[in-house]
């Protein structure tokens, strides 16, 4: 037996994947350098003051004028945007699957359309609409609506813009989630067990959509936390616009905040990934 096996083994070693996958190492290394260097350099830049290493850019943040106000504004906008988006999308998507399949292509197109209007153009259009207020509607009750929508303390117009910008991504995320759970069968099974319509949706469909809901929320959150275009052109000052204005006077602080916002995004994403994994393992074992 040994006589037979040893030549075979020699063959095997000669043929089994002789090529080293050098290209993979090279590709990953180059990519690693390109992506890590700017991050490392910014981190260094943010503490590299002329007089030596200093963490003032970070410690001075809280007392910086406008920092907290803009942060609160952004968080508020993010929260409201996520809520509005989910309240609009979830009932519509579930209903489309349960009762009005003919509306489905319509919803599909509507939720894809915002992709063809870049944020700058959308903002331009909104400004166009807002000008109608003073131009044509000065003496009508609609005018009050225009004023309310543009309230600088909480600009609803930004929420509208953000919901539209997040719509395509959130839609696709929720749609993928719904596709995986077969809503119709779930609801029919629940109804068969004696659950009412709303109860079936709340106790059976929504829990199964948890991953997709979280995913959509995260994407929306990330978008609002970083959105600069609409806010700056419309003249409000949420967090990203604040970073911009700080950048003009205090370069170190703006870089420090940039790094922090990157870390925040990262953290959110890891959180989401771990929630997704938990859910995945649960379905795998069930």
């Amino acid at each position: 037996m040994a006589q037979l096996t040893s030549p075979a083994r020699a063959h095997r070693q000669a043929t089994r994947r002789p090529k080293v996958r050098w290209w993979r190492g090279a590709v990953l290394l180059l990519a690693g350098v390109y992506f890590v260097v700017p991050l490392a350099a910014s981190a260094w830049f943010s503490i590299d003051e002329p007089k030596g290493i200093s963490f003032e850019a970070y410690t001075g943040l809280l007392s910086a004028p406008g920092f907290l106000d803009s942060l609160w504004l952004t968080l508020g906008l993010a929260l409201v945007t996520v809520l509005v988006l989910l309240l609009l999308l979830v009932p519509a998507l579930i209903a489309v699957r349960l009762g009005a399949p003919r509306l489905r292509p319509v919803i599909d197109v509507l939720c894809t359309l915002p992709l063809v209007v870049p944020p700058v153009a959308l903002t331009a259009g909104m400004i166009g609409v807002l000008r109608w207020g003073p131009d044509y509607l000065m003496d009508t009750p609609f005018f009050q609506t225009f004023v309310f929508v543009q309230d600088p303390d909480f600009p609803v117009v930004l929420v509208i813009a953000y919901v539209l910008m997040a719509l395509p991504l959130a839609y696709r995320s929720l749609d993928a989630g719904l596709r995986a759970v077969d809503v119709r069968t779930l609801v029919e099974a629940a109804r068969n067990c004696g659950a009412s319509w709303p109860r079936a949706v709340f106790t059976v469909v929504l829990p199964n959509l948890r991953g997709a809901l979280l995913n959509a929320s995260f994407l929306t959150l990330a978008l609002v936390l970083g959105e600069f275009t609409a806010a700056s052109i419309l003249g409000y000052q949420p967090f990203p616009v604040w970073i911009y204005s700080v950048g003009n006077s205090q370069a170190h602080m703006s870089v420090a905040v940039s790094i922090l916002s990157l870390l925040l995004t990262w953290l959110l994403l890891l959180l989401l990934a771990s929630v997704g994994r938990q859910r995945g393992s649960k379905t795998a074992t069930s």
């Binding site: 700017p38 350099a41 910014s42 830049f45 970083g226 990203p240 950048g247 703006s254 940039s258 916002s261």
Partner: peptide, 18 residues
Amino acid sequence: GVLANFGGLPLAFAFVAT
């Protein structure tokens, strides 16, 4: 996932710093 979301201002500032 993070870097694709890392558009906008933070990206600009990171490169200005680099």
